[in-house]
Amino acid sequence: LEFAISADGDQIKTEKSNTTMLEFVLLGFSDIPHLRWMLFGIFLLIYLAILMCNSIIIVITQTDPALQTPMYFFLNNFSLVEICYVTVTIPRMLMDLCTQKGNISLYACATQMCFVLLLGGTECLLLTAMGYDRYVAICNPLQYPVVMSHKVCMQLVAASWISALPAVIGQTYQIFSLPFCGSHRINHFFCDIPPVLKLACGDTFVNEMAVYVVAVVFVMIPFLLTIASYGKIISSILKLSSARGRAKAFSTCSSHLMVVVLFYGTAGITYLQPKPNQSERIGKLISLFYTVLIPALNPIIYTLRNKDIMVSLRKLLAKVLK
């Protein structure tokens, strides 16, 4: 074994032919230390708001008899995924902002990446299932109770959770099997694929191609299927003779379409653009959108634009305030 001194003076244990790096450092927002307490307060408030709003959605979609439909069953599961998704990244980011220490072990980094990818993939597939649900409801309303039975909904949700698992585990194992022989500083606030791959030495072409393949399967294909569903939906809505019917159909779909565009847009930019073209600062900003800001907006989009949810929420508040 040999010992090499890194640029920042840290001692890293290495082998002559390979590097064993047992710890990384997440730089997070260390380049703007004067804003760390303001960022801590903002992200803490956003995190608590995400937890509270999604928990309320889960409670009302499970307890209100009027919301026992496939659409709200999917929304219930989507809210649960959102809670898990932000919990994988934001608490760690808050701790790093508070302590100004971003040390994270290789295994903790791999675990965080695995869960971020798994939950992100699950969100993509759930959004596709929700798009299919709206397609059947609007384009084939007479067959809707049969096509979207409770059994089918359970199978779609289970498939959303399970389908990404093998690819995510394989992807994570492949990346963390690489030798890391340069800096051990990750210029990001969580262990994401692009910044971790930048630290690997040697040829990472195979890994980058694997990232593209997985991104196409779990981001591009679900997105295209969802857009195709909405193409059919919009075509059917425009054929409705009643203006009120068209307005109601658009209102039930617009919230979901808004979430789809926001989430897929930012995730696609991160995982589908070539590695050399990714600015670390821009990559960090885009990641903030799909890991923090969009999850914060989703409950607002789904509640404020949904009359049934608002009615159920008022009922819940009336019970609580009695």
Score class of each variant (00 low, 15 high):
Leu45Val: 12
Leu45Asp: 05
Leu45Glu: 03
Leu45Tyr: 04
Ile46Gly: 03
Ile46Tyr: 01
Tyr47Gly: 07
Tyr47Phe: 15
Leu48Trp: 11
Leu48Arg: 07
Ala49Gly: 02
Ala49Met: 02
Ile50Cys: 13
Leu51Asp: 11
Leu51Pro: 07
Met52Thr: 11
Met52Tyr: 12
Met52Ile: 05
Met52Ala: 13
Cys53Val: 04
Cys53Glu: 01
Asn54Pro: 04
Asn54Trp: 03
Ser55Asn: 09
Ser55His: 05
Ser55Cys: 09
Ile56Trp: 10
Ile56Ala: 12
Ile56Gln: 07
Ile56Gly: 05
Ile57Ala: 05
Ile57His: 01
Ile58His: 01
Ile58Gln: 00
Ile58Pro: 00
Ile58Trp: 00
Ile60Gly: 00
Ile60Glu: 05
Thr61Lys: 08
Thr61Asp: 12
Gln62Trp: 10
Thr63Phe: 02
Thr63Trp: 00
Thr63Lys: 10
Asp64Phe: 04
Ala66Thr: 12
Ala66Lys: 13
Ala66Pro: 06
Ala66Leu: 14
Leu67Arg: 05
Gln68Ile: 12
Gln68Val: 11
Gln68Gly: 03
Gln68Phe: 03
Thr69Trp: 03
Thr69Met: 08
Thr69Glu: 14
Thr69Ser: 13
Thr69Phe: 03
Pro70Gly: 06
Met71Cys: 09
Met71Lys: 15
Met71Pro: 02
Met71His: 12
Tyr72Gly: 02
Phe74Tyr: 15
Asn76Ile: 02
Asn76Ser: 08
Asn76Gly: 04
Asn77Thr: 10
Phe78Asp: 04
Phe78Tyr: 14
Ser79Val: 05
Leu80Ser: 10
Val81Tyr: 04
Glu82Pro: 00
Glu82Ile: 12
Glu82Val: 03
Cys84Lys: 00
Cys84Thr: 02
Cys84Asp: 01
Tyr85Ala: 09
Val86Ile: 15
Val86Pro: 10
Thr87Asp: 06
Thr87His: 08
Val88Leu: 12
Val88Thr: 15
Thr89Asn: 10
Thr89Gly: 08
Pro91Asp: 14
Arg92Tyr: 12
Arg92Gly: 11
Arg92Met: 10
Met93Cys: 14
Met95Gln: 10
Met95Thr: 10
Leu97His: 06
Cys98Phe: 13
Cys98Met: 13
Thr99Trp: 07
Thr99Asn: 09
Gln100Cys: 07
Lys101Gly: 00
Lys101Arg: 15
Lys101His: 08
Lys101Tyr: 04
Lys101Leu: 11
Gly102Asn: 09
Asn103Asp: 11
Ile104Asp: 00
Ile104Arg: 01
Ile104Ser: 00
Ser105Gly: 10
Leu106His: 02
Leu106Trp: 01
Leu106Ile: 11
